[in-house]
Computed example of a mutant assay.
Amino acid sequence: MKILHALALASVALSSAPALGQEKAAVKPGFTMPVDRPVRILVFRPDVKVGSQSAGGVVTPNAEWTANARKHLADALVLAKPGGASEVVFMPELDGENATLLNEYRSLFKGVAATVLQHRLFKGDRLPTKITGFEYTLGSGTAKLGEIGGGDYGLFVVTNDAFGDSGRKALQVFGLLMSAATGFGGMVSSGIHAGYAGLVDLRTGDLVWLNADLKMGGDVRDAEGATKRVVQLLEDFPQPGASAASARTAAK
């Protein structure tokens, strides 16, 4: 609920400052993907919610849609090989203390991401290029996750989608007709399509990159739409040597 609250606050901020756009990304200053060694990205099972939204705005979860979306997103993430990773693997199913540890860090990531979304990425007077002091960490205990899953960096993905049902679609049409005929009436949103992804250095626990979009495209319920969604989620993902190249250019 905390992260959804942060996304709601961000939506309000964007509605008052549309010039900032919907998508935001931030990279830890000076960070670049390694170029001197193979990189293995460990993906944690995407946190996916998919449901239908009624005319009154109530969201009803749909288990089948959610399961399909999770599979399609996972497949697309492996094929994407973000940041030129030599290998993209998923954390295996865990039990006992390891499962508890993973759940704790998934919750911790959401809490840290909520802070970044609310106070960094969607703050009205701050553009991504002006973000400084991007210093967020989950703590060095993430090294244990790296050992368990065999990864150098951990990729967290969160998406939340609610597709308008027939009643909401009818309300959308009615709102448009009323606005056109009388000048009154408001736009009714077509649903909820928000998501974000974050990359953590598992050796140190540092959050090195986060990208969020409050109005994402791609119908995650099918493979093609999920691929489009992953492209958006990974936009501005750190590339090998990119930060160093930028620094050299700026120094000239």
Rank of each mutant, 00 (worst) to 15 (best):
S11T: 06
V12F: 08
L14E: 12
S16H: 09
P18L: 14
L20N: 11
E23T: 11
K24M: 11
A25C: 08
A25P: 03
K28W: 01
P29N: 01
P34C: 03
D47F: 10
V48E: 06
S52V: 09
G57I: 06
V59I: 15
P61I: 07
E64A: 15
N68V: 02
H72R: 04
L77E: 06
S86I: 02
M91C: 05
E93H: 05
E93G: 07
E97A: 14
N98D: 15
A99I: 02
T100C: 02
K110D: 12
A113W: 11
K123C: 03
K123F: 08
L127T: 12
S140V: 04
G151F: 07
F163C: 00
G167F: 11
A170N: 06
L176K: 15
M178V: 10
A180V: 13
F184C: 10
G185E: 11
M187S: 14
V188G: 09
I192E: 05
D201Q: 09
T204R: 05
K215A: 13
D219L: 06
V220G: 00
V220D: 08
D222E: 06
T227Q: 15
V230A: 12
D236F: 01
D236R: 12
F237L: 01
F237N: 07
Q239N: 01
S243L: 05
A244G: 09
S246N: 08
R248F: 14
A251W: 08
